[in-house]
Amino acid sequence: METLDISLSRMIMLYGLCLLPWSLLWAIGAGLSRDIGIGIARMTLQLGLVGVYLKTLFALNNPWLNAAWILIMLIVADFSILRRAGLKPRYFALSCFSAVAVSILLSSAYLVVLVIQPAHFYDARYLVPLAGMILGNCMQGNVIALERFYAAVGKNQTEYTTYLMLGASRWEALLPYFRQAVKSAINPSIANMATMGLVSLPGMMTGQILGGSDPWIAVKYQIAIMICIFTSTTLATVINLKLSLPIAFNDYDMLNERLFADSKH
């Protein structure tokens, strides 16, 4: 079963649908016209480029090119996580990259090599979109974990130092904040699994069904991706936070506030 293509004229017609919300927002004076224009233009350009590189990647199906693409995705994700979490990349780039890379590679390899088992493990059709999807979700978790953890330690400095003075090791004193940050990062993915299929049909499954897959196959892939997202998010957040500790705290267990983006240094 082939997916029906959308011709250029019908795509233009589709963009026309945006006129409806645009005029509605304009009428209530929401002042979003410029943002809507930029949003739609960026989406079109970015997805256009994705289309071009995915076509090239699939056509060439070269293991080195696929690996290079995953590496680029990891580097972009690394900087994006740190920027959004308010941590200075020059201090945390390596620890964050290592944590995310290990988790993504492990879960993607597990899924592709052991579970899906395509003819070539590096097959771009499987490896690139699956790794990309896992990475995208894992990124969110890491932003939440890092941001929540360092905000909590910064806000509760007196409490943290009290624990230290009462004989806690650095790890013991940080554990309540660490635990809370990891929970906040993983909760969305647990909630997502719990409501999957009830609240909405998941994007990947919908895409596969539209692409002509059997619904059962689409369901299995959706379960596989959700388990990998959950696994990689948990692994990456725990490793990322753990690796960041020796950088963020000095030898006397004090938080070095200069390492955060909102510091003046």
């Binding site: 624990y163 009462l166 004989g167 806690a168 090791s169 013991e172």
Partner: peptide, 8 residues
């Protein structure tokens, strides 16, 4: 509380 920590 301090007696929850390994040291004490």
């Amino acid at each position: 509380l301090p007696f929850q920590f390994k040291a004490h």
